[in-house]
Design a binder for these strands. Structure first.
Lengths: 203, 203
DNA sequence: AGCGTTCCCTAACAAGTGTTTGGTAGGTTA
DNA sequence: TAACCTACCAAACACTTGTTAGGGAACGCT
């Protein structure tokens, strides 16, 4: 006699994840506001109202998409930061980790890029602003440490450098396609090579 | 007796430009779809319906904003390309010109970044796709020439390099504020320094 | 067989959307 | 003065939006 509970048709939590994945895909492709719940439902093979059995609003969908992404992102970042590597090695590890996250959560990253700016003003999405602050502390701090320790140039505006590095990494989500002939690690390696050493030939 | 035609209250073409400027500001801040015509009218100090005296649709507003921006952009780019400078000097001139355009058309650039991807699919905005093609030809061609002539490194994926340079320049529109303590030329200088020589200290 | 649960459908709601129509105050022109 | 044009308002239009309420089919459990 088996006590294994065989699920009925499709188990609850997995179906929820499926729906969130398709929703994220549509949000990323067309933008949050331009995406109707009917469009999401259509893509999932059901009617608009049926979505409200799983979620209580359209807003809670994007909320869950972004928060689970950020949770996983910070899990990776915190591991890197806890290792207390040198500045250059920390930057390398953060960039590599970022491309891995883009590989795993491409739609979520794309949504984050497009929508976080105006979502962060709403109280419900206060964690977006918090995350951005932590983000800036981690990167800017590492860069400053690198300048102090002689790993990075000291003739550059440090905030400009921060935005430069940050943006170069994350905009990749707009063109990156998982399953291409570049692995996240390979892309990270080339990006780091460009950011650290430049694209000009050394003479 | 003067034959100068003194304009009535406010001259037609200038009022049109004013309205387009406020519309661009709102589009850039909140996104095209999330922006209602009532919001634009409100910002301009009039009612929603009154906008339709100047424009025949919301779509034609963003159309005019984007097309005039791209016209001016290509005027600058074509001038640079016609000078037939060396690869490195061409890249430098293109980047500098780009930051000048961001300085002059920040809202338009921000709108372009956010909306062009899905607007380009509509026939009305086919010029967006055309522009992107020309854009890629200009940059990618210059980079390839630079590799061939020994100005740029040959151990990098050239398409990756292209996207890297392109993105680093244009995402600046998301945080750039005209009137800050960095002129477009100064920002371009630092960006070029980072892109060409990297942020690591040379040993 | 009966009951409960899961998951979706049907049908509607109220609010908000872009847009249109007719009107009108105030200036210019004849 | 009269006709005219510019630039706006007031009010409504058809439609789309996110969301809700009630119902019902399929399945597991007792």
């Amino acid at each position: 006699m088996s006590t294994k509970k065989k699920p009925q048709v499709t188990p609850t939590p997995e179906r929820r994840q499926e729906l969130l994945a398709t929703a994220a895909e549509v949000f990323a492709a067309h933008g949050y506001n331009a995406t109707t719940v009917r469009r999401i439902a259509d893509e999932a093979g059901m009617l608009a109202g049926s979505l409200y059995y799983h979620f209580d609003s359209k807003e809670s969908m994007i909320d869950e998409i972004l928060s689970t992404f950020l949770d996983e992102l910070w899990q990776g970042y915190d591991t890197v930061l806890a290792a207390r590597l040198g500045p250059r090695e920390t930057i390398e590890a953060l960039v590599t980790e970022s491309f891995r996250e883009i590989d795993r959560h491409r739609p979520a990253v794309a949504i984050y890029q497009k929508e976080s700016k105006h979502l962060a003003t709403q109280p419900r999405f206060a964690y977006l602003a918090d995350s951005q602050t932590k983000f800036e502390e981690a990167w800017l701090g590492t860069l400053e440490r690198g300048v102090a320790e002689g790993a990075f140039r000291d003739d550059l505006d440090i905030r400009l450098t921060y935005r430069f590095v940050r943006d170069t990494v994350w905009v990749a989500a707009s063109w990156y396609r998982p399953g291409g002939h570049h692995s996240p690690e390979e892309i990270a390696r080339q990006y780091l090579s460009m950011v650290l050493d430049g694209i000009a030939l050394r003479t």
